[in-house]
Design a protein around this nucleic acid. Sequence first.
DNA 1: ACCTACGATGGTAACGTTCCCATTCAAGGT
DNA 2: ACCTTGAATGGGAACGTTACCATCGTAGGT
Lengths: 347, 347
Amino acid sequence: MADNLNRATILEVARDAGVSKTSVSRYFSSERNRLSETMQTRIARAAKRLNYRPNQMARGLKGGHSRLIGMLVADILNPFSVAVMHGVEQACRARGFSLMVCNTDNDPAQERDHLALLAAYRVEGLVINAAGQPSRELKQIAEQGTPLVLLDRSLGDFEADEVGLDNARAIDMALDHLSAQGYGDLLYLSEPTSQASSRQLRRERFEQQLVVRGLEGKAASLSLDKDHAALEHAIRDFLAAPSQQPKALLCANGHVTLAVTRALQAQGVVLGETGLMGIDELDWCDLVTPGITTLAQPTEGIGRAAVEALLQRLENRGNAAPPRRIQYQAQLISRGSTQRPAPLTPR
Amino acid sequence: MADNLNRATILEVARDAGVSKTSVSRYFSSERNRLSETMQTRIARAAKRLNYRPNQMARGLKGGHSRLIGMLVADILNPFSVAVMHGVEQACRARGFSLMVCNTDNDPAQERDHLALLAAYRVEGLVINAAGQPSRELKQIAEQGTPLVLLDRSLGDFEADEVGLDNARAIDMALDHLSAQGYGDLLYLSEPTSQASSRQLRRERFEQQLVVRGLEGKAASLSLDKDHAALEHAIRDFLAAPSQQPKALLCANGHVTLAVTRALQAQGVVLGETGLMGIDELDWCDLVTPGITTLAQPTEGIGRAAVEALLQRLENRGNAAPPRRIQYQAQLISRGSTQRPAPLTPR
DNA sequence: ACCTACGATGGTAACGTTCCCATTCAAGGT
DNA sequence: ACCTTGAATGGGAACGTTACCATCGTAGGT
């Protein structure tokens, strides 16, 4: 009475249909065409009658094909990650794979645990968006031959395909836009760069281009979670410093944009007069008057590309091709926050 | 050269350690204490040397325990769903289960596919947030004895544990608040109610309470994706209609709140003067001047509760307890959008 | 001294598949 | 008429693990 998990097995279906289990197996793999019409209908009927579902566990065990892709996400509460994940999932499904997502909450310990887990389920490939340092676990998985793709991160000397934004180009676009709009004194705000390579890249490019273009400005990295005051302070200092150039803030990602917008609002800053621009498009960017200018990432595309790269490796096992690096371009969405008001004395 | 997936098996570890595979198996299950000290260290060393990881597929096959929980999400791009999912994942992990999430994009076909998939992986329990109609697949899964929990939905005569918001109470809270703030003419806006029971519940309660409390107002359901104009039109009509009562809009969920806020902004409506309130707290609700009043759902708690309910069923197999219904209370976050401006003629 | 009991270990048969290798039969080429 | 071929099917051995049932000491009770 307790365990009435009446899952039918392939053998029961075979018996019911009066055929061999091999034939039933063929019917449910991609060898259906090798079976005669009559056989197909008989099996179909029996399977339906018994409500049979192939056991993926057994399949995975026998053939070594789990048909599972694993994904490691640093922060599932970040809309960017979710959007990418959406793309990843769709692509997986389209190619007959299932996705197992693990969220690490930016915690290296959780990352290790989850990697062990995904390894235990024998995922055939791994999409990774986490940690600055490649953990020992990750290296082992790579050594064992599981192909993996790094999302929006690169991991030092660790060799793997990478998919993400063309960060340098994105920063350039931002600077182009801000300059064109007349802002000449810039503050770049980022979360700590040590954890994520893309954060580092963006910041470095910003600082380098500041010099190249002869602009005023500086960059700051600070943790948003703990020290809410640090951010407000950094902004206040920047805005208070004397300068004959209009000032603008550039936010390194969506999290920063949110925090900065809050801080600016708290300080009564008028957007546009002080410029504001962020990397990552968010739902609400057009709602905060006068609208926040952003660089949108093609999130779904990035997700899909990651899966494509993965499956390509999977198909070309052995041909150890050099790591690929796929870079997507950001798209500028211009809004009021980078529109300077008309000068007070017209004519 | 091609396939260097050198996953060690339990047998190799046993050989390397000079013990039987049974002992190795014991070491990696929860029977480690049955082994002598020496044996434990020998196995540990061998396992580490060979970089052994137990094969979860084989485990699942043998014991029938996949240690997998499946989750079906109607719309992964909805922050509410993500937050709940976060809670579900944490709870699973805490109890030694892994989570397999499938997103249906509100598409019944995808829902069916994904259910079949989850069944194929022999998930031990299912957390479901989807579809108005219980699909045939879902019924079969339930009949086979897989316990399942409905999230923020109930499915007609379909019996299962349910976890979600106390919708009636939430609507009452909203009405209490709006009345107290002096709004007497209300428009309730929702996505189509046919797909989701909670949408239906909320709307019905609203309409019922309107009568009970003797308030003016009405409710409307419309699809946000297709007919952007319909929403604007509904709002315009409502605001244009003559009434001696201050007007307010109540949004059935986060999606609606976003769309409505856009529409109001497009129409140049001043928030507060016209009231606005939404169910679901969102990142940006305090950013849109003068802040949008919301009813926050305890999302993570809901997720965790769902898993708890599931695991309880799993443990008490056979004792067919009646379906439980766990309801959480919303939390009012009052902001400027329900603050009427002081009358123009003071004194 | 002997039997009991328990603690520590090992061997073997499943679990539900797929894959490889038969086997059968009919059609086509010589 | 015979051999070859291939298409349609079936039988059995694996895949890596755990559960069950042995087996062996050795300590404790009589």
